Computed example of a mutant assay.
Amino acid sequence: MTTIGIILGTTRPGRVGPQIAEWVEKTARAREDADFELVDIADFHLPLFDEPRSPRMGDYEHDHTRAWAAKIDALDGFVFVTPEYNRSIPAALKNAIDFVYNEWNNKAAGFVGYGSNVSGSRAVDHLRHIAAGVQLAAVHTQVNLSLRTDFEQFTTFAPAAGHEVMLQQMLTEVVTLTKALAPQRQAAA
């Protein structure tokens, strides 16, 4: 079965991202076309990138890198849940992506962004460029959530009804593209 990782891309104390990631996971688990797994980068306790060799080499020195690499390698595609911090993605998410390289290759990526001004769209735009750099294939549809309108008092997630439709479309695109890329992943292995 195809397994899609839902990557929670912030480690900030008091973050609202887990509410969004859980909504994505709950919606995704109702589907029968793939398995879905929530992956919180905070659980991996990655320091600032500290490997002495390029991730392209796949020769990891540290246990935290090997654990992260094994998790990413075991997944067939991804949905990134990212806030917008200062018009981009959180440093913790960029760092986590940079720790490995081959493990991301030839997999699909979908995006759920959130923020206060433009609903995370600038963060998702940056993440699309970063994803391309590690050979992730981005899907077209994305979900953008507003801290102003999709949260009660900026803290309790209460998404507008239309977001569910966009999420389902994005998930369909991620699963479809992930399956289409399977021969490339197998050839690379």
Rank of each mutant, 00 (worst) to 15 (best):
V124M: 09
A34S: 12
L145D: 11
P83H: 05
D50H: 11
A30T: 13
G5T: 01
P13S: 10
A138V: 01
V16H: 11
T176K: 12
V16W: 02
T172G: 15
E84W: 03
T27G: 09
I6W: 03
Q168Y: 00
Y101M: 02
F154D: 14
D33N: 14
W68K: 06
L127I: 03
F44D: 09
G115I: 02
R53L: 09
A74M: 01
Y85H: 15
A91I: 06
F78D: 05
A74V: 00
F99A: 03
A74L: 01
R128I: 06
V124S: 09
E84D: 10
N144G: 01
A109C: 10
I7G: 04
K26C: 02
N117C: 04
W68N: 09
A28Y: 02
V24S: 07
R15N: 08
G9A: 05
N117I: 13
L147S: 12
A158T: 15
H62S: 03
H62D: 03
D59Q: 11
Y101D: 13
N86A: 12
A189D: 13
Q135F: 14
A131D: 07
S54M: 08
W23G: 10
Q19M: 07
A34D: 01
V118N: 15
Q19A: 12
H140F: 07
F36P: 03
Q135M: 14
A70K: 14
L127H: 03
Q186C: 00
T155D: 14
S121F: 00
W104P: 12
A34P: 05
E25I: 00
P47M: 07
L75D: 06
V143T: 04
L136P: 12
P90H: 05
H45M: 09
P47D: 10
G5R: 01
P90E: 09
A189T: 11
E22N: 15
